[in-house]
Design a protein around this nucleic acid. Structure first.
Length: 510
RNA sequence: GGCCCGUUCGUCUAUCGGUUAGGACAAGCGGUUUUCAUCCGCUAAAGAGGGGUUCGACUCCCCUACGGGCUACCA
């Protein structure tokens, strides 16, 4: 067989926001495609019309764009030769494939009502048997295997609702090679006659994904572990269609688990866990409930990608901070772990901090400028840029540029009480007053000259530097920690520094 | 319940029969920064349990336990 061009797909359902587990699946597909110079396709699996959520599709597209893992082809990213990429728009294609299966004896019509199915399950449960529509039970149900040919024909012509079910072989060992887990064996005796084609004329996931992957020339199906149990059915479908020679390889990814260690992360977790489970902020159009997103929380997309990549994969060389290109180069499915991973918020923060530090100050300044302007304040770009330089090492998130650095733009009105209680004494106003006096005549106002003036004021009053330094900081910024004091004061400028010291003196003294 | 997948420090993981079981985050301690959320150093911290196979098992096999997934005309 000639080597086919690698084609992978990310195939979410538009049932709400994409959560980070889904994002990671998309990421691994992206990395794999790029690694092999192949195509990454976005396909929307909207075969369940009852679960459609407005805005979900746009959300998925925007998320992938923000994260920098845009597909090459598919909804929102341009049609390739396999359009359309929305399964609801492919609806007319599926019927013929279902029919092909019926004709070949691999599938059959079933006319059972929900009540019939319920009764069957009740009956089987009562006799302590696995309740499933299978090679045994189907003989007692209403389907084209039990009904006469005429009866079936009449029912269909009458427009009776029907589904098409896969005719699962009675007892057959199905084995397939998973790129991550190795050989997986399942006996068809455990499987049931899955519905392939629903009474509303839509295929189920099982039929649609196999048909689409075939038509779209998918070479590798990289998806979550929740699909592992149905993989044997999919294998059987490829066989029934006679597509085994072009059947994609399968790789089932371990799941992302909740930090408390019970269950997989789900989109319903929202903000409950104390960290975002969504890439972008999301407001549920039905409930109106809003969940935070990584973007809005100040995470950088590169950091999110990096931390997600390492949740279930590692390059095997202790490398943790990687550019996207490095990840592409190093990514292989055989280095994906088999077990689920709990999301670690601490590590996530650390990643963001690392990336924030490596972000160009001009980029950070542009972000900070938005906040400054949002508060109706006017500062020069140079001032804002310098603020970023001074505080970037102190913070973890972009939004902290403002929350941490607010005092660069708004003089404090409150002063850290702990520091005041510990350091403020009768000499304090004297030192401040002298400092102000010495600052006033300075022509060259720099960190060095400010420090010299301050030291002189200390000496004059016989106060030790270590007993006053933090107080000086609090007088200037209101808070106990921050960047180097004199550099900060230099940026404030002489007038503002003096004003702040004066104000602190007046406020604290009373 | 049944089936499938999994199980190394608190967390993410390295190890593809022979290692003092390595790294990172978090933690603790110490230092630097007279501030700190920075930086540096150090410490503590793991092969679920039991059987095999083997000269030798974290690594291979089996059992048990535990965790996870699936079990819809949802994906």
């Amino acid at each position: 067989m000639t080597e086919r061009r690698v084609r992978v797909r990310f195939a979410p359902s538009p049932t709400g926001a994409l959560h980070i587990g889904g994002v990671r699946t998309a990421l691994y597909n992206y990395l794999f495609a790029k690694k092999h110079g192949g195509d990454f396709v976005l396909r929307i699996e909207d075969t369940d019309q009852t679960r459609f959520v407005p805005g979900a599709e746009e959300y998925i597209i925007e998320s992938l764009k923000w994260l920098g893992i845009a597909p090459d082809e598919g909804i929102g990213f341009g049609d390739g030769k396999h359009a359309p990429y929305r399964q609801s728009e492919r609806k007319p294609m599926y019927k013929q494939y279902a029919m092909q299966l019926i004709e070949a004896g691999h599938a059959y019509y079933a006319f059972d009502t929900p009540e019939d199915l319920e009764a069957m399950r009740e009956r089987l449960k009562a006799s302590n048997v696995d309740a499933k529509y299978d090679p045994i039970t189907r003989s007692a149900m209403k389907n084209s295997l039990t009904l006469s040919e005429d009866e079936v024909k009449i029912r269909i012509e009458n427009g009776d609702p029907f589904v098409i079910r896969f005719k699962m072989p009675r007892k057959e060992e199905v084995k397939f090679h998973d790129e991550i887990r190795g050989w997986v064996h399942v006996n068809t005796a455990q499987l049931d006659d899955k519905v392939l084609y629903k009474s509303d004329g839509m295929p189920t996931y099982h039929l649609a994904n196999v048909v689409d992957d075939y038509l779209m020339e998918t070479t590798h199906v990289i998806r979550g572990e929740e699909w592992l149990p149905s993989a044997p059915l999919h294998i059987l479908l490829y066989r029934a269609f006679g597509w085994e020679d072009v059947m994609p390889k399968f790789a089932h990814l371990p799941l992302l688990l909740k930090p408390e260690g019970n269950g997989k992360l789900s989109k319903r977790d929202g903000d409950r866990l104390g960290f975002p489970v969504f890439p972008l902020q999301w407001t549920d159009p039905n409930t109106g409930e809003t969940s935070s997103g990584y973007r809005e929380s100040g995470y950088l997309p590169e950091a999110v990608i990096n931390l997600l990549a390492l949740l279930g994969w590692n390059p095997g060389n202790n490398l943790e901070l990687m550019t996207k290109d490095q990840m592409i180069e190093l990514f292989t499915l055989d280095r994906v772990s088999k077990h689920g991973a709990k999301f670690d918020q601490n590590k996530a923060k650390w990643f963001n901090q690392q990336y924030l530090r490596h972000t160009d100050n001009a980029v950070l300044a542009a972000e900070l400028k938005k906040d400054v302007e949002a508060h109706n304040l006017s500062f020069s770009d140079a001032y804002i840029l310098r603020t970023c330089e001074l505080i970037k090492e102190k913070i973890t998130f972009v939004k902290e540029l403002w929350s941490f650095g607010e005092y660069f733009f708004i003089a404090p009105t409150k002063y850290d009480e702990g520091v005041i209680a510990k350091r403020w004494n009768e000499k304090s106003p004297l030192v401040l007053q002298d400092t102000i006096q010495l600052l006033r005549p300075l022509e060259e106002y720099t960190a060095a000259t400010i420090e010299a003036a301050y030291n002189e004021a200390l000496a004059k009053n016989g106060v030790a530097n270590k007993d006053f330094m933090q107080l000086l900081r609090v007088c200037l910024s209101g808070v106990a920690g921050g960047p180097p004091i004199f550099e900060m004061a230099e940026l404030f400028g002489k007038q503002e520094t003096i004003a702040r010291l004066q104000r602190a003196m007046d406020t604290i003294n009373t």
